[in-house]
Simulated assay, not measured.
Amino acid sequence: MKTKLLIFKTVANYLSFTKAAEQLFISQPAISKSVRNLEETYKTTFFIRKRNSIELTNEGKAFLIYTNKILEIYAEMENQFLHKNETYPDLIKFGVSTTLANYIMPKIISKFRVQYPKTKFEITARNSDDVEELILNQKLNFGIIEGKNTNRKLQFSKFMKDEIVLVTNAKNNTYKKGIITIETLQEVPFIMREMGSGTREIVFEHLDKYQVKRLNTVVTLNSTEAIKNYLLNSDNFAFISIHAISDDLMNNKLKIIDVKDLTIERWFYFVSRTGYQSNLMNYFENYTLNNHNF
């Protein structure tokens, strides 16, 4: 069952049977058969098959939540019983972009240190461009960053998918229907991340498809936390990672405003210098992949 769930999760993450097969080193027919068996077992349909793409059904999205929980339990069991005698160095150093540093990596590292309490971490948190520069200058050996994988001097592998959403103060009733157009998006007062931010770059990469070159930016800040605190005291808007606002949404402090026909998704990547090999990096990448709830 674990293998079938892992296959389903990989297909759901990539929304592609072909890419899932490449990632898992399994034939595409075997991937399709595994998903089909799951659908037959649970008497439902997880994916809508289109001509050149697939997408998750509502049942598929719900099943993915359960799949993530079950695979996380499998990972905990394996860490507890199969990997308990593995040893790691006294210190692990790497760089992460700020979104990951604030909202994702603390959970993973805290779980790691429960199992390996002798290992210490030295983490450099910067924007994505800065982390890349530190790796290229050999001040860091590897890192985890957001947004892009275009520098040929660096090698990238996918970590997890993220979505960037438009948010504002929960008390802001300017757009009561909770949806605006691309045209309206260009008029609202915006709080934007600094140049070099992976979030900023991916936002404008998507907006460029609609010939939107700039937004009505009224304040530029260099951290998501600063932007969130600003939004809590204003009726302005900002694009923020969904991972950064889960608590704010549940506590009714911030709310999401949909932008018609606009979806901004990105991947977080493991990154290192092209050709760089390290058992430590490989071990930590595998641990991170197996111990994060996507």
Rank of each mutant, 00 (worst) to 15 (best):
residue 75 A to Q: 04
residue 136 L to K: 15
residue 100 L to D: 00
residue 283 Y to V: 01
residue 289 L to Y: 06
residue 37 N to T: 08
residue 250 M to P: 04
residue 140 L to A: 05
residue 244 A to M: 05
residue 169 N to P: 03
residue 104 I to R: 01
residue 263 T to N: 15
residue 106 P to Y: 02
residue 24 L to I: 11
residue 284 F to V: 01
residue 184 T to C: 00
residue 155 Q to W: 08
residue 11 V to H: 11
residue 139 K to R: 14
residue 282 N to C: 01
residue 63 F to G: 02
residue 21 A to Q: 03
residue 259 V to F: 06
residue 88 Y to V: 01
residue 239 F to W: 12
residue 26 I to N: 13
residue 287 Y to P: 09
residue 235 D to I: 01
residue 96 V to Q: 00
residue 197 S to P: 06
residue 171 K to F: 12
residue 107 K to F: 09
residue 256 I to V: 15
residue 49 R to E: 09
residue 139 K to E: 13
residue 218 V to E: 14
residue 27 S to D: 15
residue 139 K to A: 02
residue 21 A to D: 03
residue 18 T to L: 04
residue 272 S to L: 04
residue 31 I to Y: 13
residue 198 G to Y: 05
residue 205 E to F: 05
residue 30 A to I: 11
residue 286 N to G: 07
residue 81 F to W: 12
residue 186 Q to V: 09
residue 19 K to L: 12
residue 259 V to Y: 08
residue 79 N to I: 01
residue 210 Y to G: 00
residue 112 F to Y: 14
residue 267 W to P: 07
residue 224 T to N: 08
residue 137 N to A: 09
residue 64 L to Y: 10
residue 111 K to G: 11
residue 101 A to W: 02
residue 32 S to K: 15
residue 84 K to F: 03
residue 179 I to T: 11
residue 223 S to A: 02
residue 215 L to R: 05
residue 22 E to W: 03
residue 235 D to L: 05
residue 3 T to G: 11
residue 159 F to H: 07
residue 115 Q to P: 10
residue 73 I to R: 13
residue 203 V to S: 05
residue 250 M to S: 14
residue 91 L to N: 08
residue 205 E to M: 05
residue 214 R to H: 14
residue 183 E to F: 00
residue 120 K to E: 14
residue 12 A to D: 12
residue 104 I to H: 02
residue 224 T to F: 04
residue 245 I to K: 03
residue 289 L to A: 01
residue 72 E to C: 04
residue 239 F to R: 05
residue 158 K to Q: 10
residue 274 T to L: 07
residue 183 E to W: 00
residue 258 D to L: 11
residue 52 N to C: 02
residue 235 D to C: 06
residue 284 F to Q: 05
residue 126 R to Y: 08
residue 259 V to R: 10
residue 142 F to S: 02
residue 181 T to H: 09
residue 292 H to I: 06
residue 249 L to Q: 11
residue 177 K to W: 01
residue 155 Q to E: 15
residue 36 R to K: 12
residue 220 T to H: 10
residue 91 L to I: 07
residue 279 N to M: 07
residue 165 V to K: 09
residue 231 L to H: 12
residue 66 Y to V: 01
